[in-house]
């Protein structure tokens, strides 16, 4: 399944700022609770984890269960003391890994 991640990170911040980060990824989050027309359970296929790293260190992560809505949305904070790169990673039940990065300039 094609999944397109979107992230919003401020382009600039001052050292010590706590910034707001928003992420959204397209994914149907098949819960494993539904049945098809023939009564067979549709197998679960969800994004089961999300991680946000800054310059290689984990800032925020989430274990995700089937009760998280389709097109999973995560909003959280990060404290930035230096310029660098945020790396975002989503892991699919089928083993696919979706990644994206954003830079921030800290003065």
């Amino acid at each position: 399944m094609a999944s397109r991640p979107r992230v919003r990170v401020p382009k600039t911040a001052s050292a010590g700022d706590v910034i707001d980060i928003k992420t959204l990824i397209s994914h149907q989050m098949e819960s494993g609770q539904r049945k098809d027309a023939d009564g067979n359970t549709i197998p679960r296929q969800i994004i089961n984890s999300f991680t946000c790293e800054f310059n290689g260190q984990v800032v925020f992560a989430c274990d995700i269960q089937p009760a998280v809505s389709a097109n999973p949305y995560m909003e959280f904070k990060a404290k930035v003391n230096e310029s660098g790169t945020f790396k975002f990673t989503w892991v699919d039940d089928d083993g696919s890994v979706y990644e994206t990065e954003e830079q921030i300039e800290v003065s």
Partner: peptide, 8 residues
């Protein structure tokens, strides 16, 4: 490094 324990 989260700075603040908030999540949505």
């Amino acid at each position: 490094m989260s700075g603040s324990a908030d999540a949505t």
